[in-house]
């Protein structure tokens, strides 16, 4: 597989959220504001790329029996970097994201890509795969948060675009809407992209 094919596969064909149904927790939890989704997405891209590279680099020396533990620890190390960076540079967003930054460690996408790709492939390929999966994930997050922020607050990236006549739909800020929007998205993708037939 060329690097381009790996990237396209990771981003669209095998998209973590709509195809593999991984990483749903944070996809639902941080998507009430677009800015939070973007920061979260960038954090996940960084962790996926760096952890993928590191795991791939040491794959020949990792005993199979302890590889899960090794992978989790490598991922945790990069998540700590992301967390400290956010706390220092964006304290407000860091507070809003709360525990969900730390929860990148147990985000199924990380373990899924480490197990399925990085532990068997070359270093640069794993880097491309990590970035691709991360971008696929961020894309879905931004899409969901666009709908939720637009209807829930009448704004996009914090800029008010709906006039004063707009009544915010508070349901869009609350939990149920996240479930419904993601379900609709999966339905549309399955029907028009994968052409699933009964």
């Amino acid at each position: 597989m060329t690097k381009k094919e790996i990237f396209i596969n990771a981003t669209f064909k095998d998209n973590a959220i709509w195809r593999q149904i991984l990483g749903i927790c944070s996809a639902l939890a941080v998507t009430n504001l677009m800015l939070n989704s973007l920061i979260m997405g960038l954090g996940v891209i960084f962790t996926l790329a760096m952890a993928g590279m590191t795991i791939s680099f040491i794959r020949a020396w990792t005993p199979r029996s302890v590889r899960m533990m090794v992978q989790v620890l490598i991922i945790a190390a990069y998540v700590i970097i992301v967390d400290i960076f956010l706390k220092a540079n964006m304290p407000v967003i860091s507070k809003q994201l709360g525990p969900y930054v730390g929860l990148i460690i147990t985000n199924c996408i990380l373990m899924g890509r480490a197990e399925a790709f990085a532990s068997q492939n070359k270093v640069m390929d794993s880097l491309v795969d990590g970035i691709g999966s991360g971008i696929g994930y961020t894309m879905v997050l931004l899409l969901i948060s666009f709908i939720r922020e637009l209807f829930g607050f009448g704004s996009i990236f914090g800029f008010r675009i709906m006039g004063d006549w707009w009544t915010a739909w508070s349901i869009m800020v609350m939990a149920p809407s996240a479930f419904f929007i993601l379900a609709m998205l999966i339905w549309i993708i399955n029907t028009y992209y994968y052409k699933v037939k009964a």
């Binding site: 149904i21 609350m174 939990a175 149920p176 809407s177 996240a178 479930f179 419904f180 993601l182 379900a183 999966i186 339905w187 549309i188 993708i189 399955n190 029907t191 994968y194 699933v196 037939k197 009964a198």
Partner: peptide, 18 residues
């Protein structure tokens, strides 16, 4: 509906439960 089987319908049920 075919496209909603599995994860899709589970998410909608969860939304209603929420």
């Amino acid at each position: 509906p075919a496209g909603l089987r599995g994860a899709g319908i589970s998410l909608i049920i969860t939304g209603i439960m929420a």
